[in-house]
Design a protein around this nucleic acid. Structure first.
Lengths: 228, 228
DNA sequence: CGGCTTATTGACATACGTCAACTATTGTGG
DNA sequence: CCACAATAGTTGACGTATGTCAATAAGCCG
C-alpha cells in the first residue's frame, strides 16, 4: 500500500463522493497489485472472491460460451469497479476479466465489500450511483446490438471516443481491432469492412489511430440520438 | 394510497430489506395509480421525472431509434424498479416504458428519490442491490446477443421461464410473440422459425403456452452455462 | 532480416431480415 | 351467438448483412 495509491483512489470519479475514512477502510481491507497485460482477474463461473477497482490501466470484460468462443462485453479503465454485482450478491462471476495493459488494481475481499455496503452509507450510495452509470452503458449496448447495423455501431463508437461535438477529430482505439470488433459485436473481418464503408463519410487512418473529418456527419449516420 | 398498496410494496423482494419507515416515506412521497394496457410511463429522451415501482402488473421497456424502429430491452414485473438510473443521475431516459397489462404503479418524484438515496442508508443499500441484479440481467442479454444464435436464445429463454431443472414443463410466454421476438433480438417471423427448429428438441404448444418435453435437453442445446 | 501476430481483401456460405400470401385467433357489434 | 373485421402468427420465396475460410499484405519484435 503506497501513498500514491491513496491519491489514485481519491481521484477516481466513481469514488469522488466517498469520505476519506471510507477510502481508507477500502484500502485497509484490500491489497494493491500491479499486473501485466494478460493477467486474469477473475473467471466466469467462479465464485466471487474479490471486488476489483482499477487505479491505473485497462481491463477487458469477457463473456464465454461452453465451447470457448468469447466476446468482449466492455472495456474498463481507471476508476472503474469490476464485477461488483457478483460480489454483492455472492454469486458466480458472469464474466472473466483480463488485464489489457499493465494495470494497478485494488483487490477488496468479497466479505469486506458486503460488510462495508451494509454498514457504510456513503459506500452503498457511491456504489448505487456507479451501478446506475453502468446500467446505462449496458442498456446502450443492448439497444446498439438490436437496433443498429455494424457500421452504425462503429460510427457511434468512434463518435463516443472523440472529444468534441463537431468538426474534425483524431481518436485512438483503446485496443487492437480484434478486441474492438468483439466489443461491437462483429468479427474482425466485418470491422474492416465497416471501416471501409465509413471511408465515404470521411473516416480514415490506420492501425489504432482513426481520423474523422466531420464528427457531426458521422454522428448523423450513426443514429446517435440519446447521448447523455 | 390504500392499505393494500403498503402490503404490496412490503412484499416486493427488491424492497424486502427496507425498514418500515423507509417504505412509508416512499409511499408518502409518491402516488399510486392503476394504469391500463398501453399507458406510457416514460419516454426515451425525456428528462427523468419519476421513479416507477411496479406493485402489480407488467411493463415493457422499449428502446427506439430516430426512425421509430423499436425494440424490447426487458420486461418488468411486480417488484421491479423502473428507470432508476436516469432518476438517480438526473439524465434523460434511455428507454420508454409501456404498460403491458393493467398495472398498479407507484410514482415517486425524482427529487424525492435523490434525497432519500442520500439520506437513507437502507434505501441506497436496497437500490444498490437491486441495480446489481439488473446489471446481471443486462450482461446476460449482451452475452446472449453476441454469442448465441436466435434459436439458442429462444431455448435459453424458455428454460429460464420454466420452474424446474429437468423433466417436462409447460410455460406461458409473458407477452405475445411479437414482443417476445423483440426481447430476444429477432423478428416475429424468425421467432416462428426458431420455434419450428426447436420442435425437433421436444418443444411444442401454441399461442402463449409452450410445452417442453425435456428441460435438460433444451438447456444443453441453449448453451446455458452460467445461471445463478 | 525472418518469423510472429494483426489487418485486409476476396470468394463463398448462411443466418437472419423482408415482403407477401395465407391461416389462425381474437375481439366486437349487430 | 354469429359474422365480420382486425390483429397475430405462420410459411415460403427471396435479398442482404454478416460470418467463415483462405490468401495476402502489413506491422511488430526478437
Amino acid at each position: 500500500m503506497r501513498v500514491t495509491d491513496i491519491d489514485l483512489l481519491r481521484r477516481l470519479p466513481a469514488l469522488a463522493e466517498l469520505p476519506r475514512d471510507a477510502i481508507d477502510r477500502l484500502l485497509d481491507a484490500g491489497m494493491v497489485q500491479t499486473l501485466p497485460r494478460g493477467a486474469i482477474l477473475c473467471e466466469q463461473g467462479q465464485p466471487a472472491e474479490y471486488l476489483h477497482i482499477i487505479l491505473r490501466g485497462r481491463v477487458i470484460l469477457l463473456g464465454q460460451t461452453a465451447d470457448q468462443t468469447e466476446t468482449v462485453v466492455d472495456l474498463f479503465e481507471a476508476g472503474d469497479i469490476l464485477v461488483a454485482p457478483a460480489v454483492m450478491l455472492n454469486l458466480p462471476y458472469l464474466m472473466s476479466a483480463r488485464v489489457a495493459i499493465e494495470s494497478r488494481i485494488l483487490f477488496v475481499p468479497a466479505e469486506a465489500v458486503r460488510r462495508m455496503l451494509q454498514r457504510d452509507a456513503a459506500f452503498s450510495y457511491a456504489m448505487a450511483m456507479q451501478l446506475a452509470r453502468y446500467w446505462r452503458r449496458l442498456v446502450r449496448q443492448i439497444k446498439d446490438l438490436k437496433l443498429r447495423s455494424s457500421s452504425e455501431r462503429l460510427a457511434g463508437y468512434l463518435v463516443a471516443l472523440a472529444p468534441g461535438v463537431d468538426g474534425a477529430a483524431t481518436v485512438e482505439l483503446p485496443e487492437d481491432r480484434k478486441v474492438v470488433a468483439a466489443r461491437l459485436g462483429m468479427t474482425p473481418e466485418n470491422l474492416s469492412r465497416a471501416f471501409a464503408s465509413l471511408r465515404a463519410l470521411g473516416v480514415g487512418g490506420q492501425g489504432r489511430s482513426v481520423t474523422i473529418e466531420d464528427l457531426a456527419r458521422l454522428r448523423g449516420y450513426s443514429q446517435f440520438d440519446d447521448e447523455a
